[in-house]
């Protein structure tokens, strides 16, 4: 099966309390590149191996948290079709078309709110600005990585983990309407059949979005960026300490996805992750199930304990 329909997480728009320290964090420490600013003061950033114009949008606001997450789809025709499917599904609310150009270098976006209260967007067009690896033109005879990387320098924005109440409605939308697979799930409750965690993928990755059932609407747990190796995760730990960045946990490993990870906070309290590893997902891979008794190693495989901060600290 070719990768079609929804291709990948295309952007995450985060609210920050103050832009200057946010940029010091996301550019100098995390190592994203600033691509553009708009008149409203939003700053658009990308990781080095992303060809698309931007993947992270920062907006100064009175509240921390996530404004929305955007998904790139394979064509304008798919965008129209999926927008119509979402409208008729009854699984989304607050649907609207955002005109082309509202994000720089980006086509029109279809925005909707899922059952957990999070705003999501689909878009089909965003300019390709390249990864600076080419030697005889942007994509010809490339080097494996560009010069002048600094900070942690993840290659891509990878996924978000979000907290919300109606996990079932959100999972149904991603699976039945948008074509995602359920790579892993956490089941709990007296009968062991209450889904409290869903790890959904639209690609070969173990997850493109994760949702945890919490009695809240529209909350943000973390945005994650991918690194090439466990050693790079350890080096990220060095860089975070050197810059006195607020650490949450790690370096450690997740049982879920098998990813090697470190969690930390941006200067507004939004959690970030850099991680490596995981496995290759195919749509016919059986869903992995984690039970309530094993939720400790599912989340933090080395400690084997779910800490209170994982559940209670979000924006």
């Amino acid at each position: 099966m070719a990768l079609t329909g929804v291709l990948r997480p295309g952007h995450v728009a985060l609210r920050v309390l103050e832009m200057e320290p946010a940029l010091k964090h996301y550019v100098d420490v995390l190592g994203l590149a600033e691509v553009a600013r708009d008149k409203a003061g939003r700053v658009f950033l990308k990781a080095w191996d992303e060809h698309d114009h931007h993947s992270v949008v920062l907006r100064e606001a009175d509240e921390a948290g996530m404004d929305y997450m955007g998904w790139r789809v394979d064509s304008p025709a798919t965008l129209k079709k999926l927008a119509a499917d979402i409208e008729t599904s009854g699984l989304a609310s607050d649907m609207a078309w955002i005109p082309a150009g509202e994000h720089p270098a980006t086509g029109e976006r279809f925005r909707f709110t899922i059952a957990t209260g999070h705003a999501m967007e689909l878009f089909a067009e965003k300019d390709k600005v390249g990864n600076d690896c080419g030697t005889d033109g942007p994509d010809t005879n490339p080097n494996p990585w560009p010069d002048n990387l600094h900070g942690i320098a993840p290659s891509r924005f990878d996924h978000c983990l979000l907290y919300g109440d109606d996990l079932d409605g959100a999972v149904k939308l991603f699976r039945d309407v948008l074509g995602f697979s359920l790579a892993e799930q956490i089941l709990a409750g007296p009968d062991g059949n209450l889904m409290i965690g869903a790890f959904l993928t639209c690609s070969n990755k173990p997850h493109d979005i994760a949702l945890i059932r919490q009695p809240v609407k529209g909350k943000f747990h973390h945005a994650s960026f991918i690194l090439g190796s466990w050693e790079q995760v350890l080096k990220a730990g060095d860089i975070l300490s050197r810059n006195k960045v607020s650490l949450d946990i790690g370096p450690t490993r997740h049982g879920i996805t098998r990813g090697e990870t470190i969690y930390f906070f941006d200067p507004s309290g939004n959690r970030n992750e850099v991680f490596s590893g995981g496995y290759i997902h195919y749509p016919d891979k059986p869903t992995i199930t984690w039970t309530e008794q094993e939720i400790g190693p599912a989340i933090f495989y080395h400690d084997r304990k779910l800490n209170e901060r994982f559940l209670q600290v979000f924006t």
Partner: peptide, 12 residues
């Protein structure tokens, strides 16, 4: 005092 994000965002 419980420690969360340390950066004014989470409220714990």
């Amino acid at each position: 005092i419980p420690v969360g994000c340390r950066n004014g965002g989470c409220g714990v």
